[in-house]
């Protein structure tokens, strides 16, 4: 079966003037500095036959080490310089801030070891890790884990993903969906939390999970 890859109507209207990226003249290219390394090799067919079907296209250009290095260099310089020019975008030095980026004058988050108390879990887990996503009106599943609202959002509250379980069932960590999610237990819906672990950030280690389990076993008090 040959594909009849018709474009959506709007795209069809645009195609004749749009699907020719390599055919465009670099005389119009505002980044001539970049383009001059590649211009001679970037022109080729627009990839369509006379029946408006996609066809495979030839190799756009053969790269050389010089092209590669020069263009990467230019791209890096452009990215970094634009970032710094536009935003003065160096990371904050953290002066007068606590570990969660809040001013110490606000009361700050005390440095301390994680213990089986709610405030300690808030300070060491929820605020620095979970509120990267679970904060405010945009929080996934409506689960806001910020200081002040997190306790009411989890303890004896039914899970949205698995309504047969509570997010935290006091005294019963195995039946607490939040525990299952951070431990990556079989049967959870969707990904293990924190989101992206272990690829884009570390998963919570066993010791941390054990402390949270202990807090639940102790009755999940708001202490």
């Amino acid at each position: 079966m040959k594909p009849q890859c018709s474009l959506p109507a709007a795209a069809t209207r645009q195609r004749s003037r749009s699907l020719v990226p390599w055919r465009r003249g670099f005389a119009t290219n505002p980044l001539g500095l970049v383009a001059r390394y590649c211009v001679a090799r970037r022109r080729h067919s627009d990839g369509y036959d006379s029946s408006s079907r996609l066809v495979s296209r030839p190799h756009p250009f053969a790269p050389s080490l010089r092209n590669l290095c020069a263009t990467v260099l230019v791209m890096c310089r452009l990215l970094l310089s634009s970032l710094c020019l536009a935003l003065g975008a160096c990371a904050g030095n953290g002066d007068d801030l606590d570990q969660n980026g809040r001013p110490i004058s606000e009361g700050g988050t005390p440095d301390g070891e994680l213990t089986a108390s709610f405030q300690s879990i808030q300070d060491n887990v929820f605020t620095p890790i979970c509120t990267q996503c679970h904060a405010g009106a945009s929080a996934p599943q409506g689960l806001d884990l910020q200081q002040g609202s997190s306790y009411d959002m989890i303890v004896n509250v039914v899970s949205q993903e698995q309504p047969t379980l509570a997010r935290i069932a006091p005294g019963d960590p195995d039946a607490s969906y939040l525990i299952q999610k951070i431990a990556g237990a079989a049967g959870i819906s969707g990904a293990r939390m924190p989101y992206g672990c272990p690829t884009s950030q570390p998963c919570l280690d066993a010791a941390t999970i054990d402390v949270i389990r202990q807090w639940v076993s102790n009755g999940a008090l708001n202490d």
Partner: peptide
């Protein structure tokens, strides 16, 4: 990642 030095997670590499 580049963040405040107090927060290790904000300074990780992947």
């Amino acid at each position: 990642y580049d963040g405040i030095p107090q927060n290790d997670l904000q300074n990780r590499k992947e």
